[in-house]
């Protein structure tokens, strides 16, 4: 079907474990989901649930041992490095940690020009595009000559977003892009993500452990637990009326910023846990 931009079909990822004849570690165990053009799919889970691995598998950074990842109908899970490079203009990434995702010894302009020159964009066009990109993420145009360390966490994340946008991709994998940011910075960066999506029609695979963030931004939400998707559907359905016991537990565990409501949620959670025991 043509309206599927990305299809993840029964994907298995095994990481080899050091040592002879050790069983490999299964990070993803038969995961399936799909993303439509212009859509945000949220991926929620706790550490070790495999949510980051799924993002990396889509990016070609994790070894896919089973199943298929189809982009516009074509399987991209076992591509060679050179074929993968051609996809750079289609699928991009924004990582969690804005402190390590930018090379500390390159200037902002060098960082932003890099993906462009890799796709053989002429130098003069590339510098023009860098100014456009800085403008799109609301950074001053003179930022190009400075080094990453001169910017705050939120600004660095804007630079990372600009780098992802450089080649006008169809899909951006966002791996916890706001987790390292302060509350108010986080809100501004999320607004930027939304604004860019509305303008360019890019789709996001939005990985986060923060339910509130995922609910705010996602059209559809998948909940992961121990390498599997336990619940998957429309955002309001999954986040407001979760069906799976794990999802319910996860949602009740997050404290609400309202003392009275939190007291109720706590009681509900205690009851749910008591029922489960």
């Amino acid at each position: 079907m043509s309206e599927r931009l990305l299809e993840v079909d029964d994907v298995v990822v095994d990481y080899p474990v050091k040592g002879l004849r050790k069983k490999p570690f299964r990070a993803l165990n038969g995961v399936s989901l799909d993303i439509r053009p212009g859509e945000t799919v949220g991926l929620v889970g706790e550490s070790g649930s495999g949510k980051t691995t799924l993002g990396r598998a889509v990016l070609g950074l994790a070894p896919v041992t089973g199943g298929a990842i189809r982009y516009n109908g074509r399987d991209i899970s076992g591509l060679s490095r050179s074929e993968r490079r051609k996809l750079a203009a289609e699928i991009q990434v924004v990582f969690q940690d804005p402190y390590t995702s930018l090379n500390p010894s390159l200037t902002i302009e060098q960082i932003l020009v890099e993906p462009l020159t890799a796709q053989d964009v002429a130098k003069s066009d590339a510098t023009r595009r860098v100014r456009e990109l800085l403008d799109q993420v609301h950074l001053p145009s003179d930022a190009g000559g400075r080094l990453p360390r001169e910017f705050s966490g939120g600004q660095r994340q804007r630079i990372a977003i600009a780098r992802a946008l450089a080649l006008s991709p169809q899909l951006i994998v966002c791996d916890e892009p706001v987790s390292a940011l302060d509350l108010s910075t986080q809100a501004r960066v999320l607004r930027l993500f939304e604004e860019i999506q509305n303008r360019t029609g890019v789709a996001y695979l939005f990985v986060s452990h923060d339910l509130a963030v995922v609910r705010h931004l996602s059209h559809r939400v998948a909940v992961m637990y121990r390498g599997e998707i336990v619940e998957w559907g429309d955002g309001d359905q999954v986040t407001a009326r979760p069906q799976h016991p794990y999802t319910q537990k996860l949602f009740l565990a997050a404290p609400v910023p309202d003392p009275a409501a939190q007291r109720r949620r706590r009681a509900e959670r205690t009851r749910l846990l008591a029922d489960g025991a």
Binding site: L59, G60, L61, R84, R85, K86, L87, A88, A89, I91, Q92, V93, F95, Q96, D97, T100, S101, L102, N103, E114, P115, A118, Q119, A160, R163, A166, L167
Partner: peptide
């Protein structure tokens, strides 16, 4: 992460 990002950017 910046090496991963470079790889995703399509650098050889």
């Amino acid at each position: 992460l910046y090496v991963d990002a470079a790889r995703v950017s399509g650098l050889r």
